[in-house]
Amino acid sequence: MLGRLKQLIGKLYVIALMAYAIWFGYFIYPLIFAHGGHEEAAQHSISTDLKMPGALTAEEKALHKIRAEQKATETTDLGYVVLKEQYVKGHFHHIGMTVETDETNVCIKCHGAVPHNKAKTIRAFLNMHAFYIACETCHINTMAKPAQAPWTFRWYDKKTGQVVANPPALVSPDLEKYGNYGTKIAPGTQADNGTFRFINGEEERVFLERYLKTKDAMDSTEQARMKRVMHNKVSEKPLLCEDCHNMEKSYLPFAELGYPPRRIDRLENTAVVGMINKYRDFYLPRFFELHGEQSQTPARK
């Protein structure tokens, strides 16, 4: 019995050695034949990334070139992914801070994480807000006055989509990350039994993913119908800057969300509100009318 077992182990060892010999042959091949750094030779061939059927227009080519450059370091979708990058090509100033990207928000699955581009003067600000505030926080379809919003607000984890505690970086100046908390504020409802549910929660995510998988099989009317349903909670016309940045009653409960008095003061009083008030340009209602083309600031007339 013992002898047989010993024999079996011996055979297994021989088989293992044979596998090792084959692996070794495979392992040494590049060591022998790829001399030095020759493996790196394939770098930087950007134009080879254009694998589209037919001839491309100049714009398509330019766009593909940009995408290819970005793809060298990332894999997923345009706009969304780029934020992951610590180094942006042609960016003079150092970024030096990696970011947590939102993996769960349903809106950015289609609209991207850098969605605002219409209002020339404030689009970057809006994208900056979108970095730590979920789209549906401001783009909410509500008849109620913002100050009496029926929602409660919570931070969610950008990776899991689950409710998390208020980010400690808000309170401690040492930890300050200027919006890069790995979390976002989103509206939700609190049931009587105390359970909290985000307006765009797990159910909505499943709905969207199913839609994205099947939409190519639908005709355009069907797609439009689905989109209408998906967007019934949100509104293209968002809340205004002053709905939060005002001295009386903010739409977002900053204190509840963990902002210390020092920061609330900056958000509701001096710095930001001052800027909004002093520049008519900053008034949000105008930007959809203007489509970012020209400014109708009274001061410029």
Binding site: A62, L78, G79, V82, G96, V114, H116, A124, H129, N180
Partner: peptide, 19 residues
């Protein structure tokens, strides 16, 4: 603010953040 950014007319990502 780290998120101060936009996509420009050519589809290029522009980041306006200063560390």
């Amino acid at each position: 603010y780290r998120g101060l950014s936009r996509i420009d007319e050519n589809g290029k990502f522009r980041l306006f953040y200063i560390n």
